[in-house]
């Protein structure tokens, strides 16, 4: 059911939840049939003020390359490759990225085959044919196949440096758990978490979950923004980066692209949060943690 780039609509559109949900049949979720492209294209709404920002082709090429560069057994690894390049290619304001209709359109019209390739379980429950859960097509930002990658890149990058976002996307539990926490909207908090990943202080899924629970619980009594202040990203620089898309080359496939130059996260603030989180993590209970480090098999979700 792979689609050739030439058959695709030129511009992205918006597909409302109701329309998306109606077309997520069992056949689409199991990957046996394609969504009805013609009907969907007709029901989609146009994006106001359309321009090159909404071109479909660069996205489709990106998804094709992600598949080409990762074989089926390494498909979870495609997340950390795709996230920064998707963010670089699809330049959105946060208000735009908060619209589920855009992500519905990408999942159902532009790349349903990618969603199935990436998220179809290997084995099915209760003897039925394996199926992708519907929220990978049409769901909240931490579940939807493309929204979660875009938001991970947006929330974990350090200014124009996507490397922290790559570290975040290498761990499925960061995507599944940390991404949905409100506290990571604070840049130094997000960066402290990725630094702990880079330094190998947290590694397994269970460790990530334990850390996430501890960070979230502590945030109910502590105001992280007061402990480690951050002026926040430079909105004008972000705008400039968005407008610059026409001049920008396609996302490089082998090296990381550069993100928006909207200001690095103050290092001192990251230090404060990282020191605090390390202390929290040392005291946090980790499920199934043995006295000597038991090897854990990474879970393919």
């Amino acid at each position: 059911m792979s689609r050739h780039a030439d058959d695709l609509p030129e511009q992205l559109g918006l597909l409302r939840d109701a329309v998306a949900a109606r077309n997520l049949t069992r056949g689409v979720l199991t990957g046996q049939e394609s969504p009805p492209f013609v009907a969907l294209a007709r029901e989609a709404e146009r994006i106001k003020g359309a321009g090159s920002r909404w071109n479909v082709r660069p996205l489709r090429e990106l998804f094709d390359d992600a598949r080409r560069l990762h074989d089926e057994s390494g498909r979870t690894g495609a997340d950390s490759w795709l996230a920064p390049r998707l963010h670089y290619t699809l330049r959105l304001t946060r208000a735009e990225a908060a619209d589920p209709a855009l992500w519905n359109y990408i999942a159902l019209v532009v790349a349903p085959d990618y969603v199935v390739w990436r998220h179809l379980p290997k084995t099915a429950r209760d003897g039925k044919r394996p199926a992708v859960t519907a929220d990978r097509f049409c769901g909240p930002h931490y579940k939807q196949a493309f929204a979660r990658l875009w938001w991970a890149a947006e929330l974990f990058r350090d200014g124009d440096d996507y490397r922290p976002a790559v570290a975040a996307c290498r761990n499925q539990d960061v995507l599944n758990t940390v991404l949905r926490l409100d506290v990571i909207d604070h840049r130094p908090t997000a960066r402290a978490v990725t630094r702990m990943l880079e330094d190998g202080i947290v590694r397994t899924g269970r460790e990530v979950n334990a850390l996430a629970t501890a960070i979230n619980a502590a945030a109910s009594t502590l105001m992280y923004e007061v402990l480690a202040s951050d002026e926040g990203p430079d909105a004008e620089a972000f705008r400039y980066w968005m407008d610059e898309l026409d001049m920008a080359p396609p996302a490089p496939r082998k090296t990381l692209p550069a993100g928006p130059g909207d200001g690095a996260i103050p290092e001192g603030a990251v230090d404060v949060m990282a020191t605090y989180f390390e202390k929290l993590f040392a005291e946090a209970p980790v499920r199934g943690k043995e006295p000597k480090d038991a090897e854990e098999v990474p879970i393919d979700v």
Binding site: R94, E96, S220, L222, M223, Y224
Partner: peptide, 25 residues
Amino acid sequence: RDACRTRAELSVSVVATVDGVPGRI
């Protein structure tokens, strides 16, 4: 405007150092 989709909630918190712990709400 670019940062908000429909409606944001505005609240106020008072933060202080208590028992030697800074940043307490």
